[in-house]
Design a protein around this nucleic acid. Structure first.
Lengths: 231, 231
DNA sequence: CGGGTCCTTGACGGCTCTCAAGCAGTGTGG
DNA sequence: CCACACTGCTTGAGAGCCGTCAAGGACCCG
């Protein structure tokens, strides 16, 4: 729950930061500076909780850099990762819509630069800048489609399919290069609705089959894309 | 894929229908009639596919009455129910945002009155009526939160918890009355990420434990709310 | 009456979780 | 510089939950 002091910045620098956010991409210069005036910007270290279940978070946050993990605590009492947010993504919109307490946690996975906008300000921006509302609408629609995909995957596919689909999704499009998993294997397992043990076993099985190569740490290599895709 | 002819209606009657849709609730009289002029209205029988995966659906549909089932076909080839939509809900927004083909199916579960708005018209309405964009934003946010809840439930909880949570969710708030399940047990099972067999067994187990009473058809009665809630 | 769908119940097998131990990498403090 | 703790990851053994396959019954609508 630790919080760092604001980084004081010139209004101009802040406006340039805000302009790079997809959400505000199409605002005019004067509109941008109006938004920038009401925004606070912070740098957070790793493992900082931005808000937690039960809290009445009152700001929309926009990620400039770093990764943020969204998760819940299930009835059984263990952590269930819902989504990983990165640069350009926003969070805190759920408590804006229904003014109840959040039902999930948001934690930084890496050092992160995040700017925050109070819900009251958001309200007025949405009504005066239809393009912003439109952009949030689009983002949420895509996010919803993605979550529905995740849902049908967890509900219907077995562990092999889920792991293979995830690897193909995060691997660079190019052929058989080495790349780094964006988050810890433990978090990936949770995201896929698996235990870390099962995830580890599936990776070992894929390597044994010659489909991937595991390197120390989070690095791995895909050797046989087609085998993974129509498992 | 059958489609019934439009029900011709006076513009006035149509405007009144449109006014009852939450999405357009706060529009002025003149704005309402402007929307109504571009809307087509249809009555569909049961089991009609509104659109399917692979189709480029080009209209936002708003449900006046009836139920619509949204589902996918998983890699394994069986149907996975994602969501049930009812009066006031809209569908077809995903193909509006990214102009690709739909990845899911939409089918009526009951006779349904549905009005449709072409995506091009929606675009202009969203920009001229910020309240409408705002409303869609709110609805999507809630829908997303609900889907995330479903996701963590399917990923983390066992069958007993999921079935109990569903029953408590659809049962009337009042004490121990009989009520009717809104959809078939087969569809509920799929929605919960279970097979119909497992769902049936869980219901039988709940009845054997004295927590619920099963009546013929879709009727049932909850006898012990607390037992179900902290299983 | 017949065909269909939906639902229930039984037996069985397998996938995945749980529990447990061991290893590697990292940061910390003596 | 090393000992140590801690977290993340891997591997093994076992058990249990749930899916699959199968058969039969209830109900609806032709």
């Amino acid at each position: 729950m630790q919080q760092l002091p604001n980084h004081p910045r010139g209004e101009n620098a802040l406006a340039q930061l805000v302009a790079r956010v997809p959400l505000f991409a199409q605002l005019s210069e004067s509109e941008l500076s109006e938004v920038a005036r009401r925004v606070t910007h912070r740098s957070h270290p790793r493992n900082i909780q931005l808000y937690g279940a039960g809290e009445h978070n009152a700001s929309l946050m926009i990620i400039h850099s770093g990764l943020v993990k969204i998760y819940r605590i299930t009835a059984a009492g263990h952590e269930q990762v819902i989504r990983i947010l990165g640069p350009g993504d926003f969070l805190g919109e759920s408590t804006f819509v229904d003014r109840t307490a959040a039902d999930h946690f948001a934690v930084t996975l890496e050092p992160a630069d995040i700017c925050a906008l109070h819900h009251d300000d958001l309200q007025s921006y949405l009504l005066s800048f239809p393009g912003v509302a439109m952009k949030m609408f689009e983002t949420l629609t895509r996010r919803l489609a993605e979550t529905e995909h995740q849902l049908s995957s967890v509900a219907g596919d077995d562990a092999d399919h889920r792991v293979a689909a995830y690897l193909l999704q995060v691997a660079p499009a190019a052929g058989t290069g080495m790349f780094r998993l964006p988050i810890s294997k433990k978090d990936i397992a949770s995201l896929l609705g698996l235990t870390p043990e099962t995830f580890s076993r599936k990776l070992a099985y894929f390597e044994g089959s010659g489909w991937i190569l595991l390197h120390p740490g989070r690095d791995l290599e895909i050797r046989d894309r087609t085998a993974l895709s129509h498992l």
